[in-house]
Design a protein around this nucleic acid. Sequence first.
DNA 1: AACTCTCTCAACCGCTATTTA
DNA 2: ATAAATAGCGGTTGAGAGAGT
Length: 243
Amino acid sequence: MGRQPCCDKLGVKKGPWTVEEDKKLINFILTNGQCCWRAVPKLAGLRRCGKSCRLRWTNYLRPDLKRGLLSEAEEQLVIDLHSRLGNRWSKIVARLPGRTDNEIKNHWNTHIKKKLIKMGIDPTTHEPLEKEAKAEESISHADHSADNSSTPAENCSASDGFDLLNKICSDESNLLSSLWLDDEPPLVDCSWNNLPACNATSFPAWEENCSWLLDFQDFGINDLGFDCLNDIESNKRGDKTIA
DNA sequence: AACTCTCTCAACCGCTATTTA
DNA sequence: ATAAATAGCGGTTGAGAGAGT
């Protein structure tokens, strides 16, 4: 016999979350902490599946999220990490506190990919596109050589005129080697990771640092208390227009 | 003003690894 | 040992917003 089903599939709501639902989820996690996602919808009074609750929390409601556009440094780090780790977003995001895998994945697909292509770099292999084309050509003429077995990182030193790629490849070796370690802590401390799981009574440092979350419950628009959500959104859009 | 196109990103889907009864 | 559920991951989709005509 296995476990009990995570949620009653019947009557489970899908689609965008409402402010009311967000509030319920925030309230529940504030009170009960983050544990047993399968129980969350029922206990929080949500007609959602636990998986959906977890996603909503980790990608949108978490108090330690930075939000807004990625800085140049963050973008560089993503490119760097991607050249070594590939599409392993969870590993990449582990080095970017305050960011989510979904966010980084989206940013990669919508911005960085295009940027790299524009710069003449293949976003998948991190090889110069010219070189790639030549390589493909030579492969079509002759059977593939042993050169292709080397990793992008190994090859990139040969790419003249590609400043970004060179920068990536010449990063401090200590830093880069640490990026390969699976259980390495993030480059910047992330207090969220230190949260006591499943402890309903203790939210010491977290609550102190997340007064905005509590603000959700005290102030608001549309009689629901989410004014600052709109602020965040408008700030975000403001950033966009500035950029 | 109205329509179409493009872009962005929140959310879902399906899969794998891990955990639990 | 096994089956079934959970958690988490990466890929994909589609609604909404903004830009262009």
